[in-house]
Amino acid sequence: MPEASPLLAVTEARVTYRRGGRVNHAVRGVDFVLGEGEILGLVGESGCGKSSLARALAGLEALSGGDIQFCGTSVTGLAGRHRRDYGRLVQMVFQDPSGSLNPRMTLAQTLGEVLTVHGIVSRAGAPAGVAALLERVELPAGLASRYPHELSGGQRQRVGLARALALSPRVILADEPVSALDVSVQVQILNLMRELRDREGIAFLFIAHDLAAVNYLCDRTLVMYAGRMVEEARGQDLWRAPAHPYTALLRASIPEMARRSASPPPSGPPSHGAAPLSGAGTAGLHHCPFQPRCPRATRACCESEPALASVGPGRRSACFFAMEQLQDTLDDG
């Protein structure tokens, strides 16, 4: 995908929460770029730091280390007008659309407020602006006078997108935007996101735990584990042939129509081995965080944390045995 002009470039990003004497290293040094008009997927289990990363990108959380560059300019120390500009150009859409809409305001009021407060249209121009926004998210103009509770979940999420679109963003950070929706509706929102990219060139960071949805929508995918990026791949490469044992485990865990077996995936986690909260460790680990659950783990994995290294075109993996993993999954099918 477009390597030429990264819209967002994240280097060594760290997010740390402190409460009392306890320090939680939610994101521990993450690097990636998001290209112009690219749809980038971000997957990982609860607690792996993906939402913290998105919040940092949106400026809702301060980085405790590293840097975020937007169009070549660092945004970590921005203030005043520049900070507001960045906030406009990078928008966030949340999982629960009803929680982010005022129940006592009609769509016309909600969307009109965004447009007028930011000076995008005058008060008189608001109805036309609202109508244009509704059209961009493929909602009938007649819904403008409705309240959020009168809409279906899918319609509410379209309104969430419309509100983000109001500020003409270049990037939309979508944090689990379809997980709360019905299966029959999810794909409609995914299609809308793809159309917005195709029509308007908006880039998306799509955070999800539904691997099939990520595979369906994204040009490139990042996999996070315990606050670190463990794999990156283009297109369908990730699911065709994982280059990290964790990705292989994720793939094996998906219940698929084709696979009829009640047996656990071969490389299933040890009993009650949930993903460790990234805060459980220190900022720099002296072992691979996945090692306790990994079928490939050796002594080396207990002694140092593997770095994210290139394993092919557009492909990175943070595993000492990435090549072997890749080879095995290719051999399997």
């Binding site: 279906s152 899918g154 299966v183 029959s184 509706v185 999810q186 794909v187 409609q188 995914l190 299609n191 691997l211 099939a212 949805a213 595979n215 369906y216 369908q236 699911w239 793939r251 998906i254 698929e256 129509m257 084709a258």
Partner: peptide
């Protein structure tokens, strides 16, 4: 319902949801 759900196996073939609710 079956056609609305993306699956890992069949790549990025465009899928349509079910209109209405």
């Amino acid at each position: 319902l079956l056609q609305a759900v993306p699956r890992l196996g069949d790549g990025r073939r465009r899928r349509e949801g079910i209109p209405g609710r």
